[in-house]
Amino acid sequence: MSYWPLLGILLVVLGFALRMNAMLVVTVSAIVTGLLGGMDLHKVIATFGKAFNDNRIIAIVWIVLPVIGALERYGLQQQAAAVIRKMKAATVGRLLLLYLGLRQITAALGLTSIAGHPQTVRPLVAPMALAAAEQQHGEVDEETAEKVKATSAATDNIGLFFGEDIFIAIGSIVLIQQTLITYGYNLSPLHLALWAVPSAIAAFIIHGTRLLLLDRKLGRTRK
């Protein structure tokens, strides 16, 4: 058994550590993994194509991402930050709390791919959160900026994770249903989805509290 294909994982780690373009890192790592696994370049590209054809929603992401990249190049992040700086009442916690609610609601409706780290967090949410921090507390240091960006990413993860299970036609619901059947519990997807609602509400309250506490922490840091 060859362990060389695992080099692709190392490339992903190094690429993210060096803050390189995420899409470029993942694509190159996938190609390297395929080549080291004994596939020729033509077969690697064909495998990409088959995956896109079998999962057509991925093709939509590939269509949208170049648009997002072009918008970033021509000042999307700067414009998003400028909008927030004009809103005197905007804070990091309030902004991310609003995004958390929107992310949970859209995920609960099955719209899991309309937001995410490459689509919204990196080009919009994180720059807006940083602008809100600077609006309220002045220029922030690197550690605080990284904290705000990490919290923005975590908010997206939490909103998606606890929101998508409310949608009955999601893979996780099917997995839970099939697992419970093996233990003699035959529950419908709707039943499981309804039980996901209290978890989503609890996640919103708990993480929302953390976001509001972050505002207070940032305020104490600047004093």
Score class of each variant (00 low, 15 high):
residue 112 T to E: 14
residue 222 R to F: 09
residue 104 Q to V: 15
residue 49 G to I: 06
residue 17 A to P: 06
residue 72 E to K: 13
residue 155 T to Y: 01
residue 141 D to P: 01
residue 34 G to M: 07
residue 96 L to E: 05
residue 100 L to W: 02
residue 155 T to V: 02
residue 182 T to E: 12
residue 123 P to N: 08
residue 196 A to S: 13
residue 200 A to F: 01
residue 80 A to H: 04
residue 211 L to S: 00
residue 75 G to D: 11
residue 62 W to P: 02
residue 207 H to F: 13
residue 129 A to K: 05
residue 54 D to H: 10
residue 41 L to C: 04
residue 219 G to N: 08
residue 6 L to A: 14
residue 116 G to D: 10
residue 42 H to M: 13
residue 30 A to N: 05
residue 185 Y to M: 13
residue 84 I to H: 09
residue 71 L to Q: 11
residue 103 R to A: 15
residue 76 L to C: 01
residue 193 A to S: 15
residue 68 I to H: 03
residue 195 W to F: 13
residue 166 I to P: 03
residue 222 R to Y: 03
residue 120 T to K: 00
residue 105 I to K: 06
residue 166 I to V: 14
residue 55 N to T: 14
residue 189 P to N: 06
residue 5 P to Q: 08
residue 134 E to A: 12
residue 201 I to M: 07
residue 59 A to C: 06
residue 178 Q to C: 00
residue 180 L to M: 15
residue 18 L to P: 08
residue 60 I to S: 10
residue 37 G to N: 12
residue 37 G to H: 09
residue 137 H to K: 03
residue 6 L to R: 04
residue 173 I to M: 03
residue 157 N to F: 00
residue 107 A to N: 08
residue 13 V to C: 10
residue 78 Q to V: 00
residue 61 V to E: 06
residue 43 K to T: 15
residue 192 L to W: 03
residue 121 V to D: 07
residue 134 E to P: 07
residue 7 L to E: 01
residue 126 A to V: 05
residue 54 D to G: 10
residue 192 L to S: 01
residue 125 V to L: 14
residue 147 K to R: 13
residue 186 N to R: 10
residue 139 E to M: 04
residue 220 R to F: 01
residue 106 T to I: 10
residue 103 R to W: 04
residue 14 L to C: 11
residue 221 T to N: 08
residue 214 L to H: 03
residue 129 A to P: 05
residue 50 K to W: 13
residue 47 T to H: 11
residue 205 I to Q: 01
residue 176 I to D: 03
residue 36 L to F: 09
residue 52 F to S: 09
residue 16 F to E: 10
residue 222 R to P: 02
residue 114 I to S: 10
residue 12 V to N: 12
